[in-house]
């Protein structure tokens, strides 16, 4: 691995990018540690791709600085790209080449042996017969699989993936998740942007949430999951108890013998508290991060100023 264990693999300090007077990214400061899978979330146009393109040297920061694998993104962009695997969003490939030729070409240009290609092709179900076909004949999902292979075939120290599961069917998404799990187990670092909250929940150690070019928050996913809110429906024989006797339940609505509410916190503790012979039915919907994230996605007028506080738990 490049860099020391303490040094962040990706570090940005007040990174700002403007197109003329239009701000695309404002004072972004994040650190991505070695060996973690870091999710980068935000709605369309939030600045996710701008951040990634700045890290790879496609865009020049207006102000602030960033480093990848200990190297400055402005001064050492070529070396950063040597050590990095990148999957662009909606990847475009050379239609006249076969899948195999495209991988050979991009692998040659990378200048590193494509050690992982066979394994990745196997796991993503890209047999030789498919690789011999021209890219122009590929479906979107097939192109995306080639995109994943080209990004990871040289076993990069850092993978930067822009919406990597777009176009992949559910089976291939699972295969892709397992690939990322293995990368993490090997100590590789993955930085990926996504809209898909379930995959962020499934994969990421930490997430950054960005909106309108501003960093809204950086969270440990495990912590978010602990704080997640679940929808609860309880039915009692006879009348419902007083809402105050239901610990942890918020937004309580009572309809006869039924109570609806939102549970924050530990389920076991709540179940113990409400357990009684008169309890007839209990439904707790599976929790997801969606609601937690939607709090950040919503309210576009509430974007903090450049100097404003950011809730970061790093």
């Amino acid at each position: 691995m490049e860099g020391t264990p303490q040094a962040p693999v990706i570090s940005t300090q007040a990174l700002t990018k403007r197109y003329g007077s239009v701000p695309a990214l404002t004072d972004l400061s994040i650190d991505v540690a070695a060996g973690e899978i870091f999710g980068f979330l935000g709605p369309n146009g939030a600045g996710k791709s701008t951040t990634i393109r700045t890290l790879l040297g496609f865009l020049h920061p207006t102000s602030g600085s960033a480093s990848v694998l200990g190297r400055d993104v402005e001064a050492d962009s070529v070396e950063i790209r040597r050590l990095t695997g990148y999957l662009p969003g909606g990847i475009a490939l050379y239609d006249s080449l076969t899948g195999e030729q495209a991988l050979d070409y991009l692998g040659d240009l990378q200048g590193r042996e494509p050690h992982r290609r066979a394994e990745l092709c196997d796991r993503l179900e890209l047999p030789t017969a498919v690789l011999k076909r021209r890219v122009r004949d590929y479906s979107r999902g097939m192109r995306q699989k080639i995109g994943v292979v080209q990004a990871l075939q040289h076993d990069p120290e850092l993978a930067i993936l822009d919406e990597p599961t777009e176009g992949l069917d559910p089976l291939m998404q699972q295969a892709f998740y397992r690939i990322l799990d293995d990368l993490r187990a090997e100590g590789r670092t993955v930085f990926f942007s996504s809209h898909v909250l379930s995959e962020v929940e499934r994969l990421c150690d930490r997430v950054a949430i960005i909106r309108a070019g501003h960093l809204m928050a950086v969270h440990d996913v495990s912590e978010l999951l602990a704080r997640r809110r679940r929808r609860v429906m309880i039915r009692w024989r006879g009348g419902a108890p007083e809402p105050d006797s239901l610990p942890g339940l918020e937004d309580v609505q009572v309809h006869g013998s039924r109570v609806h509410g939102t549970l924050t916190g530990e389920v076991a503790e709540f179940v113990r508290a409400i357990a009684s012979p008169s309890l007839e039915d209990l439904t707790i919907e599976p929790a997801s991060l969606e609601e937690a994230f939607l709090e950040y996605y919503a309210e576009p007028d509430d974007v903090p100023t450049a100097a404003g506080p950011v809730e970061a738990e790093q």
Binding site: R81, R82, P88, Q150
Partner: peptide, 14 residues
């Protein structure tokens, strides 16, 4: 325009 420049420049090529 095709988007392939991005794939090329993702390699260690100035």
């Amino acid at each position: 325009a095709r988007g392939t420049l991005e794939v090329l420049l993702a390699r260690p090529i100035s």
